[in-house]
Amino acid sequence: MSRQLTFKIFRYDPLQPEIKPYTQEYQLEEASGMTVFIALNLIREKQDPSLQFDFVCRAGICGSCAMVINGVPTLACRTLTKQYEDGIVTLLPLPGFGLIGDLSVDTGKFMRSISERLQAWLEPKDHEVDIHSLEIPMESEEAEAIYEADRCIECGCCVSSCATAQMRDTFVGAVGFNKVARFALDSRDSREVEDFYHIIGDEDGVFGCMTLLGCQDNCPKDLNHQGQIAYLRRKISMSDRII
């Protein structure tokens, strides 16, 4: 006989503002290897079709199912229910993003605006591309470093784990620093390191980071945000432009 799980889920629909936010409880029998994502689908399928939450890939790649699970912003599809000894799972939507309803938030709007603000795209050195020419090979170390930064799935857990980002919505946050680092590493990009640093060398950038390390603790992809931000801060401090 499997144990009973209790899910305490934040409920609020911005389209029905007359109903105040509340916590709804659901009971569910635990199954072997059950994730919070599986449990939510079962609840929605068998108990409450009105429950709103996001998912796409179910494999920790798309970042859609990020939510606060027992106080930790993380991915529902990668969170096993068996780790909660008391069988109680409290679910909240990610703070810091626009609420769509219940556990569903709009991370896309934030990510898009950060990308545009940081110009997080490749600016090729040569705009005239000859498709018949051989591609210039990239050093494997460089490719690996870019790949490492590219592992970010933009789930928003770093932003939701960061008190600085919560208090100051202009703060770039770890996901933004990671974007800058990714293109600064890329030898195909025409921009100089100083160009990238110019974007994040202020109070909304690296000098606004208070090293609260929520990004480091809660990144579902285990990206080294702590190291990356410290490195960026040192580099930008040593740059000739900023004494």
Binding site: V68, G71, V72, P73, L92, P95, S160, S161, A163, Q166, M167, R168, E203, M210, T211, L212, L213, G214, D217
Partner: peptide, 29 residues
């Protein structure tokens, strides 16, 4: 002093955030 939250709203967010996403370094700060 520039690190101090300057607006009441920021203090409120901080208090709420510390409850919903408890984290060692935020508490230390």
């Amino acid at each position: 002093i520039r690190r101090f939250p300057t607006k009441y709203k920021q203090w409120k967010i901080l208090k709420e955030f510390s409850k919903t996403v408890p984290q060692r370094e935020t508490n230390l700060w």
